Simulated scan of single mutants.
Amino acid sequence: MGQITTTADAIRSLATAFATALGEGWTTAPHERDAVTLTHTDGRNMTVTPLWDKTSDWKGEAPDRVAVRGHFPDSGLKLTSAEKRRTKMTAALTRSEESITAAMVRMAETYTALFEMVSAYNDAQATARAARSTLRAELVGMIPAGVETTRAPEVNVTQERICDEQSQRTVGTTNHQVALYFPKLNQYEARELMATFRRLRISKQQAAAEQVADVQGL
């Protein structure tokens, strides 16, 4: 390989070497301003970008450094500043391609671990949203004909949180609360409706317990 030169071809060569070192599933594609994007089949995404000195015009002078940054999907799980710093790096293009690639791979290991954490959080949130949507549909189906509501039943996440001990960051939630608004129900109708909801909850709990018992009995 040898020493990196300061051409766009060298940036592409470096990105290709990086993708090869990372293993299967990675592809490269041209990006703006001579940068290259690396994309994995699981959604991971990084860019290798030529980095110009702040005092120089990028159009007129060759870059003297290369920057690498990992990207994440939109998420309610926010990374700390320290974590974000660990998912990017720069290196002087005077270093050898082997040396820069090795540093990129080390950074990518940290990036991958954080990407998996964010993805797991997003998957858990998607599962919770689907469960709330299903419950909301069941509740709507129980509303007696002719009953008017101020708005459709809502299923909200409670403030009972599961936190990561080290970062104190919320990584999940437990339980749900149901908010129903029926302004024209009399007290007897309201009691009957809520009794129906309670029966639904108990039947679901019993079904879940039976399922666990069946699994344990295998």
Rank of each mutant, 00 (worst) to 15 (best):
T7S: 05
L14M: 13
F18K: 02
A19W: 01
T20F: 05
A21L: 01
G25L: 13
G25D: 12
W26N: 15
T28W: 04
A29S: 14
H31L: 01
H31R: 01
R33H: 00
D34E: 04
T37S: 05
L38Q: 03
L38R: 01
T39P: 12
G43Q: 08
R44W: 04
M46S: 01
T49P: 01
D53G: 14
T55K: 01
G60N: 14
A62M: 08
D64T: 08
A67I: 03
H71W: 13
P73T: 01
S75Y: 03
K78M: 06
L79W: 15
K84F: 00
T87W: 09
T87S: 15
M89W: 00
M89C: 01
T90P: 03
A91Q: 09
L93F: 03
S99E: 08
A103H: 01
A103R: 00
R106S: 10
T110S: 03
L114P: 10
F115A: 00
E116M: 01
E116D: 02
A120T: 10
A120N: 09
A120K: 06
A120M: 06
Y121H: 02
Y121R: 00
D123Y: 03
A128T: 03
A131T: 14
T134P: 07
P144A: 03
A145L: 05
G146P: 10
G146Y: 08
V147K: 12
E148H: 15
E148W: 14
T149K: 11
T149I: 12
P153V: 11
E154N: 14
V155S: 03
T158R: 07
Q159N: 13
R169Q: 09
T173D: 05
T173I: 03
T174A: 15
L180I: 12
K184H: 05
N186T: 11
E189S: 00
E189F: 00
E192T: 04
F197S: 11
K204H: 06
A207P: 05
A209T: 14
V215Y: 12
Q216C: 08
L218E: 07
